[in-house]
Each structure stands twice: as C-alpha cells, then as structure tokens.
Computed example of a mutant assay.
Amino acid sequence: MDEHLYIVTYDISDQKRWRRVFRLMRGYGEWLQLSVFQCRMSRQRHAELIALLDGMIHHDEDHIVILDVGIAEKVAPRVVSLGKDFEPVAREPVII
C-alpha cells in the first residue's frame, strides 16, 4: 500500500470548530503541536480527510494546509526539533 506522509496544519477562527477539527485529526494522525498533525495515509484516506475537513470549516474565515512530504516508506524527514523528540509516524494496524 502506497501511503504518503502528510503534515497538516490549520488556523480555525472559531473555538468550537477548532475542537471539531482537532478531534477529527486525532483519528487520522499523530498530534505534534497545537494545530499541527503528522499523518500517514493512503490516497483514499487523504481524499476522505479532505472531504470531511472541507465540510467543517468556514472557507472565508479558516485555513488548512496539507503538505505531502512523499511516500512514507521512502521519506527521511530532516527535522530540527527543540525540546521533545520528533519521531515520524510509523505504520500501525488499523482496528475497525
């Protein structure tokens, strides 16, 4: 399965919408910082996430950026991390 590594960051103007987006993102990736997630997803999960986020935000007030870092198995992120250690999200089984 070709999974890509994504960095998702968002600026949501309304606290209630921010919490909804945060809860959704916790189901798709690893929380890095306040409004930043690291996600390892297939193309299908990526499209699903975009559709869900698109329906949640107010397009004239909010902003979400999704950066495709590359194929998860091949990417070797060069990261400078001060404070807590940074670890790329690993492939894990999904329990449904």
Rank of each mutant, 00 (worst) to 15 (best):
Met1His: 09
Met1Val: 13
Asp2Asn: 12
Glu3Asn: 12
His4Asn: 15
His4Arg: 15
Leu5Asn: 12
Leu5Ser: 06
Tyr6Gln: 01
Tyr6Cys: 00
Tyr6Asn: 00
Ile7Thr: 09
Ile7Met: 09
Ile7Lys: 02
Ile7His: 03
Val8Cys: 13
Val8Ala: 14
Thr9Pro: 02
Tyr10Leu: 02
Asp11Asn: 04
Asp11Thr: 01
Ile12His: 05
Asp14Gln: 09
Gln15His: 11
Lys16Leu: 05
Lys16Val: 10
Arg17Asp: 02
Trp18Thr: 11
Arg19Pro: 02
Arg19Trp: 08
Arg19Phe: 07
Arg19Cys: 05
Arg20Pro: 01
Val21Phe: 00
Phe22Gln: 11
Leu24Asn: 06
Leu24Ile: 10
Arg26Val: 04
Gly27His: 13
Gly27Pro: 04
Tyr28His: 14
Tyr28Phe: 15
Gly29Glu: 00
Gly29Ala: 01
Glu30Phe: 07
Glu30Leu: 14
Glu30Gln: 15
Glu30Ser: 12
Trp31Ser: 09
Leu32Phe: 07
Leu32Arg: 13
Leu32Cys: 06
Gln33Phe: 02
Leu34Ser: 09
Ser35Ala: 12
Ser35Met: 11
Ser35Asp: 10
Gln38Phe: 03
Arg40Asn: 07
Arg40Glu: 06
Arg40Ala: 02
Met41Ala: 05
Met41Ser: 03
Ser42Val: 03
Ser42Met: 02
Ser42Cys: 03
Arg43Lys: 01
Gln44Lys: 11
Gln44Cys: 05
His46Trp: 00
Ala47Lys: 14
Glu48Lys: 10
Glu48Leu: 12
Leu49Ala: 10
Ile50Thr: 10
Ile50Leu: 09
Ile50Arg: 14
Ala51Gly: 10
Leu52Pro: 03
Leu52Tyr: 03
Leu53Met: 01
Leu53Ser: 00
Gly55Glu: 03
Ile57Lys: 02
His58Asn: 08
His59Ser: 09
Asp62Cys: 08
His63Asn: 13
Ile64His: 02
Val65Glu: 10
Val65Ser: 10
Val65Arg: 15
Val65His: 10
Val65Met: 11
Ile66Val: 15
Ile66Arg: 10
Ile66Leu: 14
Leu67Thr: 11
Leu67Gln: 08
Asp68Leu: 03
Asp68Lys: 10
Val69Glu: 07
Val69Tyr: 08
Gly70Met: 12
Gly70His: 10
Ile71Thr: 13
Ile71Met: 06
Ala72Met: 00
Lys74Thr: 13
Lys74Gln: 15
Val75Met: 13
Val75Lys: 11
Val75Gly: 04
Val75Pro: 05
Pro77Gly: 05
Arg78Tyr: 06
Arg78Gln: 12
Arg78His: 12
Arg78Asp: 12
Val79Tyr: 08
Val79Gly: 10
Val79Met: 13
Val79Phe: 06
Val79Thr: 14
Val80Thr: 12
Val80Tyr: 08
Val80Arg: 13
Ser81Glu: 08
Leu82Thr: 12
Leu82Gly: 10
Gly83Lys: 10
Lys84His: 07
Lys84Asn: 13
Lys84Gly: 04
Lys84Tyr: 06
Lys84Gln: 11
Asp85Gln: 06
Phe86Cys: 13
Phe86Ala: 11
Glu87Val: 15
Glu87Met: 15
Pro88Tyr: 06
Arg91Met: 14
Arg91Trp: 12
Glu92Trp: 09
Ile95Met: 14
Ile95Trp: 12
Ile95Lys: 08
Ile96Ser: 08
Ile96Pro: 05
